[in-house]
Simulated scan of single mutants.
Amino acid sequence: MTTRTCPCGLPEPYDSCCGRFHAGASSAPTAEALMRSRYSAFVQGDAGYLLRTWHPRTRPARLELDPGMRWTGLEILDTAQGTAFHTTGTVTFRASYRGGSLHERSRFERVDGAWVYVDGEFSE
């Protein structure tokens, strides 16, 4: 079992945090948990997980990740809805990488009971 801290920013080991979602052992229970697990998938270079958790309506046919990209941190700025009681939700976040950061408001929906990423709006 890996004991390194999860890249998503929560103080838990990767294997018991986002790693269990990446491995398919369970699904993210909230839109925020899915957002965190998707960030961790970018860190890990797990394009398969990113595609599996993308809404079928907006999912690209394939995803090329930049192997030189070094993600350095995730900050959740706001969440709206996205709990077990909702069918949609948004998560606003800042993802830092070596040399800059990405600020996005992501939209999520449930498809067959599982949270998936729909799309996002970038901001400054």
Score class of each variant (00 low, 15 high):
residue 9 G to W: 00
residue 12 E to I: 01
residue 15 D to T: 13
residue 16 S to T: 15
residue 16 S to V: 15
residue 21 F to I: 06
residue 22 H to Q: 12
residue 24 G to Y: 12
residue 24 G to C: 12
residue 27 S to N: 14
residue 29 P to D: 11
residue 32 E to Q: 10
residue 33 A to Y: 05
residue 36 R to P: 07
residue 38 R to D: 03
residue 38 R to S: 03
residue 40 S to W: 00
residue 41 A to Q: 07
residue 42 F to Y: 13
residue 43 V to S: 05
residue 44 Q to N: 11
residue 47 A to I: 09
residue 47 A to T: 10
residue 48 G to V: 13
residue 57 R to Q: 15
residue 57 R to D: 15
residue 58 T to I: 05
residue 58 T to G: 12
residue 62 R to C: 12
residue 62 R to M: 13
residue 62 R to A: 15
residue 64 E to T: 15
residue 65 L to M: 08
residue 66 D to L: 04
residue 66 D to T: 03
residue 66 D to G: 06
residue 67 P to W: 09
residue 67 P to N: 08
residue 68 G to Y: 06
residue 68 G to S: 14
residue 70 R to H: 14
residue 71 W to C: 00
residue 72 T to Y: 01
residue 72 T to S: 11
residue 73 G to T: 01
residue 74 L to F: 11
residue 74 L to V: 08
residue 74 L to M: 08
residue 75 E to R: 00
residue 76 I to H: 05
residue 76 I to F: 08
residue 77 L to E: 13
residue 80 A to N: 09
residue 80 A to G: 11
residue 82 G to E: 06
residue 84 A to T: 12
residue 85 F to D: 13
residue 85 F to C: 04
residue 89 G to S: 06
residue 90 T to I: 07
residue 91 V to Q: 03
residue 91 V to R: 01
residue 91 V to F: 07
residue 94 R to P: 01
residue 100 G to E: 08
residue 102 L to K: 08
residue 104 E to C: 03
residue 107 R to I: 03
residue 108 F to S: 06
residue 112 D to I: 02
residue 112 D to H: 09
residue 112 D to C: 05
residue 114 A to T: 14
residue 118 V to N: 12
residue 121 E to R: 08
